[in-house]
Write a protein that binds this DNA or RNA. Structure first.
Length: 323
DNA sequence: TAGGTCAAGCGGGGTT
DNA sequence: AACCCCGCTTGACCTA
């Protein structure tokens, strides 16, 4: 459709509905709008709402009983001072006027009820507050646009907060991963050192795992768990003195266990993760991350553990045995 | 005076 | 064709 709609025979571009014909000067315009005897929606710079460009309200508190809540200016009322100019062919460009606070409040309430505008409702609203139906439609359109903008801002803030949270979790996980990697490396070093020392001090192979009957009081599966739990409960910096104490009956078993195969650090890493809830000193993640983190860990890490890490997955019912 | 706000214009698309 | 809605823009006005 071509622009420049025509309403009630007046082109909106040059003559706004409910608006006086433009005066030849802003001073004239103001004086024209200063209320004297007119009912509602007449106003001027001295009107109650200082923020309104032009306040149409009846600031004199005139009796409006028997009238609609708001009443627009009739064209006859508008023409007073400008008739001459208009007839002479003068026509000032339109002066935009803000709706009054009362009008806006009325429209806002209506908007809260329903932000779409049926034709009947539009006409009704227009009558109620003394505006042209077209103005009501425009106000609702602009109001919907503002509402949409605000909603977008809200959604953006919400998504950004979500992103920030996830990023914090991710960073924390990265830190934890690095820490656990370092711990695994440290443990491997200790293992190799202890291995060498034991080989030097007991060259006769007293504790060869292949014929280790004397030191097998604990079943293999349980022994593995003992080793893992002890490892995990120790702070990496404390060098696991108990674990590597040569007096320990599990000492040699640990040393020759394939659990901490130096070639597979991921196993150690993964096993350690399974014991987060037991570790006090290394619970960086637990102290930082929300419970969601752990549920996610379970979802993402334990639903389908790698086959080669099965020996690290503690059976739930085993845990009370160790703790 | 720059930037924000708001009523209104404009043009395109959809519906009846 | 008339009407409506939407996105974008314009222009008047306000404010820091």
């Amino acid at each position: 459709m071509a622009g420049g709609r025509v309403y009630n025979g007046s082109n909106m571009t040059t003559l706004l509905p409910n608006e006086n014909l433009a005066s030849s000067s802003s001073r004239l315009l103001e004086s024209f709008w200063i209320p004297n005897s007119s009912p509602t929606f007449h106003g001027g710079p001295s009107a109650s709402s200082s923020k309104s460009m032009v306040n149409y309200e009846n600031v004199h508190g005139g009796d409006t009983s028997g009238r609609p809540l708001f009443q627009s200016l009739g064209k006859d009322e508008n023409m007073d001072d400008d008739d001459d100019d208009f007839n002479k062919g003068f026509r000032q460009p339109e002066k935009k006027r803000r709706l009054t606070a009362s009008q806006v409040q009325f429209l806002e309430k209506s908007f809260e009820v329903e932000n779409k505008l049926e034709p009947e409702r539009k006409v009704q609203l227009a009558k109620e507050i003394g505006l042209q139906p077209r103005q009501i439609a425009i106000w609702f359109q602009n109001r919907r646009a503002r509402h949409k903008t605000k909603q977008l801002e809200k959604d953006f803030d919400s998504l950004k907060a979500c992103y920030d949270t996830l990023k914090a979790e991710y960073d924390s996980l990265l830190n934890q991963k690095e820490k656990l990697k370092n711990e695994a490396l440290l443990l491997k070093d200790k293992l190799s050192i202890s291995d060498k020392e034991s080989a030097n001090s007991e060259p006769c192979g007293l504790i060869n795992p292949l014929n280790a009957e004397p030191i097998k009081p604990i079943p293999n599966s349980v022994s593995e768990k003992v080793a893992m739990v002890v490892c995990k409960q120790e702070d990496a910096s404390s060098v696991k003195s108990d674990v590597f104490n040569s007096d320990s009956p599990n000492y040699t078993y640990m040393n020759h266990s394939s659990l901490l195969d130096p070639g597979d650090s991921s196993q150690a890493f993964e096993a350690d993760q399974s014991d987060f809830s037991q570790d006090d000193d290394d619970m960086l993640g637990q102290s930082v991350l929300p419970p969601l983190y752990f549920s996610k860990l379970e979802d993402e890490c334990y639903h389908d553990p790698p086959a080669n890490s099965s020996s690290f997955g503690f059976v739930v019912e085993d845990q009370p045995f160790w703790f």
